[in-house]
Amino acid sequence: MRQGDVLRLSGMEQAKLFMTAQQYRAFTEKFLEQVRPELDKQREARLLSEEAAKRHLVR
């Protein structure tokens, strides 16, 4: 049995559902679609940074 299927947090006895699982899946899909181009650019910039570092001698 997995741990914690019915666990709750102290202080959150009055908590209620903010989003259903289906709504949250839809949100995260849209969210990642929107942010992905920026993340892709950053990944490219990091690779370019590593390449540039190969030509940069310090002494």
């Binding site: 997995r2 914690g4 709750r8 989003m19």
Partner: peptide
Amino acid sequence: MGTALNRESDVIEL
């Protein structure tokens, strides 16, 4: 709570 408990997302509010 889902991410915190390593299972499917379960977003709650207080």
